Amino acid sequence: IINNLKLIREKKKISQSELAALLEVSRQTINGIEKNKYNPSLQLALKIAYYLNTPLEDIFQW
Rank of each mutant, 00 (worst) to 15 (best):
I1P: 10
I1A: 08
I1F: 15
I2H: 13
I2Q: 12
I2A: 10
N3G: 03
N3C: 07
N3L: 03
N4Q: 07
N4K: 09
N4P: 01
N4C: 08
N4V: 04
L5E: 01
L5V: 09
L5Q: 02
L5F: 01
K6W: 04
K6M: 09
K6R: 14
L7N: 14
I8Y: 09
R9M: 07
R9D: 02
R9L: 05
R9C: 06
E10Y: 04
E10S: 08
E10C: 08
K11Q: 14
K12C: 10
K12D: 03
K13E: 10
K13N: 14
K13I: 05
I14S: 03
I14E: 01
I14N: 01
S15I: 04
S15D: 06
S15E: 05
S15M: 04
Q16F: 02
Q16D: 05
Q16T: 07
S17Q: 12
E18N: 09
E18Y: 07
E18M: 09
E18K: 13
E18R: 12
L19N: 00
L19S: 00
A20S: 08
A20F: 01
A20H: 03
A21E: 13
L22F: 14
L23G: 03
L23K: 00
L23N: 02
E24D: 13
E24T: 07
E24M: 12
V25G: 02
V25I: 12
R27Y: 12
T29M: 14
T29G: 03
N31V: 14
I33Q: 00
I33W: 09
E34H: 02
E34F: 02
E34W: 03
K35C: 11
K35M: 14
N36I: 04
N36M: 11
K37H: 14
Y38L: 12
Y38F: 13
Y38A: 08
Y38N: 07
Y38H: 13
N39K: 14
N39G: 11
N39L: 15
N39F: 15
N39Q: 15
N39V: 15
P40N: 01
P40A: 06
P40F: 05
P40M: 06
S41Y: 04
S41H: 06
S41W: 06
S41T: 11
L42G: 05
L42I: 11
L44I: 08
L44S: 02
L46T: 09
L46E: 08
L46F: 07
K47M: 12
K47R: 10
K47Q: 10
I48D: 00
A49H: 03
Y50G: 06
Y50E: 09
Y50A: 09
Y50T: 07
Y51W: 08
L52F: 07
L52H: 00
L52Y: 01
L52G: 02
N53Q: 14
N53I: 05
N53T: 06
N53D: 14
N53S: 12
T54H: 05
P55F: 04
P55I: 04
L56E: 02
L56G: 02
L56C: 07
E57W: 09
E57D: 12
D58R: 07
D58G: 04
I59T: 01
I59E: 01
I59A: 01
I59L: 11
F60C: 04
F60R: 00
Q61P: 15
W62D: 08
W62R: 09
W62I: 12
W62H: 10
